[in-house]
Write a protein that binds this DNA or RNA. Structure first.
Lengths: 142, 142
DNA sequence: TACCCTATTGCAAGTGAGTTGCAATAAGGA
DNA sequence: TCCTTATTGCAACTCACTTGCAATAGGGTA
């Protein structure tokens, strides 16, 4: 995940942007986290490095990263209306969320490319993005 | 779609609830619409029958129907944070949205049951709900 | 290194979808 | 027809997210 911060730095400076303290900290937080983060989560962690970082700065940085495809927003839960982010993955993958304990399992599957093919065959539609969010019970919670 | 209103009536009265004018109208709107509706859409249409129907009544009715699994909330679009509803289908189906014209294609697929099986085999997880939202370009917009 | 331009920030106020408290209303059983 | 109480409309609220603006601080230039 080291390249994530580097990649972001390049994008920012190429845009005529500036690598500021708050941005550095926010990037650090996102890239070093193993789990999916809400804007609030990012703020909490960033404020451990700099108490003055503001929520709107987090949102603005997030918007920048999103527009440059460095992170992706995800919804895991039909009841949770918050945006949840993670660094954009190299390989497309999908999510299973346990409705009891909240555990998230990331997985890949050959069935999704098959789905793309089906859309092409059946409707002539070209799928650019596949959001597959499964919910149910993990082995522990069954 | 006639059963939708009937089904809702039974659920409401079995619950000790009352079949009121606003509810009747809202149910009518949902069941007779062919497309996916936001709360606002439903309000607009309902107000054509009764100008005094209120948005909070729409939300409360929607919450009731949702908790009884008569409708399902859906998100089609990562940029659209609104809840979009449709009558809960007998057969699970999925959505493709064209990012240019907004057209929604509903489809079924044997690949999704295969996905459930994969989760069972690979992680021991039991999938209860599968949300599959594909986006891309429909034949016309390509 | 000092200076300056302007992108970025923090703050506070604003949006907009959805929720809630409450007094008034109206189903529908007795 | 009456009475109980579920439901409504309204207005005020919540909460995630956005925006306007004056103050701040990157980072290129002299």
């Amino acid at each position: 995940m080291i390249d994530f911060v580097e990649q972001a730095k390049h994008l920012i400076t190429n845009d005529g942007g500036r690598m500021t303290q708050p941005r550095r900290i926010i990037l650090e937080v996102i890239s070093s986290s193993q789990k999916h983060l809400t804007a609030e989560d990012i703020l909490d962690q960033a404020q451990q490095s700099d108490r003055h970082i503001n929520l709107s700065t987090v949102y603005r940085t997030l918007a920048f990263l999103k527009s440059h495809k460095l992170i992706e927003p995800r919804y895991f839960d039909q009841d949770n209306h918050r945006e949840v982010f993670e660094p954009a993955p190299k390989a497309e993958h999908y999510h299973f969320t346990c409705t009891r304990c909240g555990q998230v399992i990331e997985f890949q599957s050959r069935h999704v490319p098959a789905l793309r093919q089906q859309l092409r065959d059946e409707f002539g539609a070209e799928v650019n993005h596949a959001c597959v969010c499964l919910t149910g019970l993990c082995p522990t919670c069954q």
